[in-house]
């Protein structure tokens, strides 16, 4: 499998789909490129999967391209993927035929218990082998290429053998997966580890990018006056993340870009303003790259 290199993938700027906005979207038909849903919110509760969530998603899917973003596959679990969950993901993908499918470089299940957080992985050869095997398994089951997202991290591990960017590059090369570059996560992680985000982005294997995420983060005080950035998705994208994004796409060109806002969800008008901002930046870059070509 090769990376999808079409600029923007034909999608432009999109928004994370929240139930609070179903009505705004269906009644107002906003000019948004696409929507992304969390796969786990459309898997039912064990007695089939229907009701209002699917009623609305089907109508939105009929009008807009869709991206399915998994948040619970635990692709970095040493104990292996839960086959039942992979089947549930396959059912959502089969039902909605999304333009993009993605998951996280993280783990969240251990000994059958779901820990409901995207937990960090030590970047070692052993971890890489596990993640490559699982991405293979997912791509074989779904019969399509998936994208893997760089995480927000708070911890580092002494045993690490490679940088996150090198890990992601090797993962994409060995498994054939694409990458979902979350610029907010880059900002959060590099701030937390006292690293330069522009250096991270310069090292990032941009040739594998299939999608970009933007979101808001919070800052908390840690003992000793140190502050820590937390990936909260509960506020607007920060100016510094916008600046990183703008400089990134001016270098690599336009790619499908999503605004994520998952907590303290704002009005549709507020969220769509951020989507419009991303869209205008993408359009500018698209024009510039078209002229250059």
């Amino acid at each position: 499998m090769t990376a999808d290199r079409r600029p923007r993938g034909g999608l432009g700027a999109g928004a994370g789909l929240k139930p609070e906005h179903y009505r705004d979207i269906l009644d107002g038909r906003p000019g948004v490129g696409w929507f992304e849903v969390h796969a786990e919110n459309y898997m039912g509760t064990g007695n089939g999967a229907g009701g209002p969530p699917h009623f609305f998603l089907e109508q939105i899917r009929a009008r807009y391209p869709l991206s399915v973003h998994g948040v619970g596959l635990s692709i970095g679990s040493a104990e292996g993927l839960a086959p039942g969950h992979l089947q549930r993901l396959a059912a959502v993908v089969d039902r909605y035929q999304p333009a993009l499918v993605s998951e996280h470089l993280a783990w969240s299940t251990h000994a059958g218990v779901f820990l409901n957080d995207l937990l960090p992985l030590p970047y070692t050869e052993a971890t890489l082998a596990v993640v490559v095997r699982h991405v293979d398994q997912v791509q074989s089951t779904l019969k399509r290429r998936i994208l893997i997202e760089n995480p927000s991290t708070y911890l580092r591990f002494a045993v690490e053998q490679m940088a996150e960017t090198a890990f992601l590059c090797e993962l994409a090369r060995r498994s054939g997966c694409g990458l979902l570059l979350d610029v907010n996560n880059v900002f959060v992680s590099t701030a937390n580890h006292d690293f330069d985000p522009t250096v991270y982005l310069a090292d990032f294997p941009v040739e594998h990018i299939g999608e970009i995420h933007l979101a808001g983060h919070a800052s908390i005080e840690v003992a000793g006056g140190e502050s820590l950035l937390i990936d909260t998705h509960d506020r607007p994208v920060s100016d510094r993340v916008w600046a990183l994004y703008q400089s990134l796409i001016s270098r690599i060109g336009p790619y499908p870009t999503l605004i994520e806002w998952d907590s303290d969800v704002p009005t549709w008008a507020r969220l769509s303003a951020d989507v419009a901002r991303a869209e205008s930046l993408l359009s500018f870059e698209e024009g510039r790259h078209a002229r250059a070509a």
Binding site: E79, V113, L115, L119, P122, T124, Y154, R156, A158
Partner: peptide, 30 residues
């Protein structure tokens, strides 16, 4: 702050998960 890995990925995740679910206070704010 660096956390220490004690073995392979499976051991790492067992220890991490146990600490997550434990009621004991943790000094490491991260």
């Amino acid at each position: 702050m660096l956390a220490r890995l004690e073995g392979g990925l499976a051991d790492f995740q067992s220890g991490f998960a146990a600490s997550l679910l434990s009621a004991e206070k943790v000094a490491d704010r991260r």
